[in-house]
Design a protein around this nucleic acid. Sequence first.
DNA 1: CCCCTATGTTACCGGTCGGTAACATTTTAG
DNA 2: CTAAAATGTTACCGACCGGTAACATAGGGG
Lengths: 180, 180
Amino acid sequence: MAAGDLFHKQGIRGVGVEAIAEAAQTNKMTLYRYFASKDELITEWVRGIVAHKEEDWKDLNAKHRGDPEGQLQDWSRRTAAQLRAMEERGSALGNAFAELPDPSHPARQLMKEHKLRTHKRVVRLCKAAGFPDPAFSANLFTMMLEGAHSCGTCVGMRQIGEHLVQVVDLMVENNRRRTA
Amino acid sequence: MAAGDLFHKQGIRGVGVEAIAEAAQTNKMTLYRYFASKDELITEWVRGIVAHKEEDWKDLNAKHRGDPEGQLQDWSRRTAAQLRAMEERGSALGNAFAELPDPSHPARQLMKEHKLRTHKRVVRLCKAAGFPDPAFSANLFTMMLEGAHSCGTCVGMRQIGEHLVQVVDLMVENNRRRTA
DNA sequence: CCCCTATGTTACCGGTCGGTAACATTTTAG
DNA sequence: CTAAAATGTTACCGACCGGTAACATAGGGG
């Protein structure tokens, strides 16, 4: 899905179907034989991103089975890596969410569900890790994660990523000391 | 600037000049006698929001002169209040930033400058408050602030706001204990 | 009253965009 | 090789949008 690059770089509404077709090395007609509308194209693109992130979580769970702290830490590290690879344009999902105000848009719903699932996962991890107030800690994690994407404009993504990792490590270690 | 409501609710690109004029209880022609283009309209709208936020900072500084911790805490409380008053649609500036990919767009530059100024202010406050690693703490604050806006989708803005206040208070108190 | 300015009205222009029809071309499979 | 399926090409439609011209109307100060 080469269209995604365009969506991300120029904004969903800023890129025309013609340009998408060209980027996919085909033409408008063929495109419309596979996708019913531009909205469906957008939705499939979003679905792909979301699926990829969900896959990442499965991988995380497989790699650190029964180790919630490890999952949280690895998660922060992967996020930091993504941040490092990120350009001026910020998070694809975040931007897409802002560009699709219609609450009934399928792509928006996909993103919302994914956000909810992710947050629930983090709450579960915090609970499993024995954090005294899992809801609070989870919200904190989520806030920082979401925020990290949009504040690379201030100091650069590298530093933000490192600090994200730092603070997650710190919280996990603190909690370990507390429970030990 | 009633146009702002439309920009915020339907997205900048999703609202036409005609609708803006109608919302301002006038018509397109009169609008174009005051603003050279839609982009200028957007820019002025953004300028207004940014100016308001800067004014808020001045007020913060005036109310807690020589008390950096107090400024940080009050800042988190004001943000929480904004979050509580926020609907499904999220932060106006955040969305605008996502909707204006062109780095040379004046509105985008305004937002970027504002973000940088704000972050520098937070760094200065952290330094003044005697945080051991001001850059780190400031990034943490900014991450949470930025993130709070975009993760109300998960658990609702009220809880996010409260937790933002909680963690800022916690950090400030921790630092106070450390330096005492 | 009258002039000047601000505002409103209508119609229009050029361009772009999402989407489709009809037809030509290539690729693939049997 | 041939038939069928997939892909490409061109042209087009209708809708919308940003922006403008020309003209009508109102309103306020001298």
